[in-house]
Simulated scan of single mutants.
Amino acid sequence: MKLAFDPQRKVPVGIVYATATVARQLDRIDVLKALDRHQDGDWGLVSESDATENEFVLINGLRLLSVFEDRKGVRFWIITEADRSYTTVLFPSDY
């Protein structure tokens, strides 16, 4: 899965990639909804301290992490690199 997203959003994500396991196992709609939330600065299921860290990271140009679950309760991560050139959707086990 490879998509490009609007750079005018709160989080420019660059080109979006998904690991092979995510592409095989998750419904594309669930991934797209999570990416939409990620771009709006909704970090999903991260802890309060990780959400605060993401706000700091957003301002200071570091790597961002969001955590989401699909409709079946399967947890996955979205990581946007510091330079915002690309974002990866992956399972924690893919890391």
Rank of each mutant, 00 (worst) to 15 (best):
R37P: 06
Q25N: 10
N54Y: 05
R28E: 11
D36G: 08
G44R: 04
N54D: 05
D36R: 10
D30R: 10
L35W: 07
R24G: 02
D50K: 12
D30V: 08
E53V: 08
L26G: 02
E53D: 14
W43S: 07
L35I: 15
I29G: 06
D27M: 05
G44C: 05
I29P: 01
R28H: 06
D50P: 01
G44P: 06
D27G: 06
E53T: 15
G41Q: 05
D42A: 07
Q39T: 10
G44K: 10
R24N: 09
N54L: 02
Q25G: 00
A34S: 13
E48A: 15
D36E: 13
E53L: 15
A34L: 08
Q25I: 01
S47N: 09
T52P: 00
T52C: 03
D27W: 03
L32N: 10
I29Q: 11
S49L: 13
L35H: 08
W43E: 01
D40Y: 10
G41K: 07
W43Y: 07
E48G: 12
S47A: 09
E48F: 10
A23N: 00
D42C: 11
K33H: 07
R24C: 00
K33Q: 06
T52E: 09
V22L: 02
Q39Y: 00
A51W: 06
D30H: 10
V22K: 01
R37N: 13
V46A: 01
Q25F: 01
A23Y: 00
D36Y: 11
D42P: 03
D36V: 02
W43I: 04
L35V: 14
D50M: 12
A51S: 15
R37V: 06
L26E: 01
D36A: 09
V22N: 00
I29A: 13
E53F: 14
R24Y: 02
R24E: 04
R28D: 04
L35M: 15
Q25K: 11
A51D: 13
L45P: 04
D42W: 13
Q39E: 11
Q39G: 10
I29R: 13
I29E: 11
K33I: 08
W43K: 05
K33W: 06
K33R: 14
V31I: 11
E53G: 09
W43Q: 08
E53M: 14
V31T: 07
L32D: 04
N54G: 09
W43L: 04
K33V: 05
V22Y: 02
G41P: 08
L32H: 05
D40F: 13
L32Y: 12
D40C: 07
A23G: 07
A34H: 04
I29T: 14
D27A: 14
L32I: 15
D30G: 08
S47V: 00
D40I: 00
N54A: 09
R28G: 00
T52Y: 01
E48H: 12
A23M: 04
L26D: 03
D40R: 14
S47M: 07
L45F: 10
S49N: 14
R24I: 00
R24D: 07
N54T: 05
K33A: 11
A34W: 02
L45N: 14
D36I: 01
D40T: 09
W43C: 03
D50I: 12
D30K: 03
L35P: 11
T52R: 15
D30L: 05
L26N: 00
D30W: 02
Q25T: 05
Q39N: 06
E48I: 10
D30T: 05
D36W: 09
L45A: 08
L45C: 08
G41V: 06
G41I: 06
V46Q: 03
V22F: 01
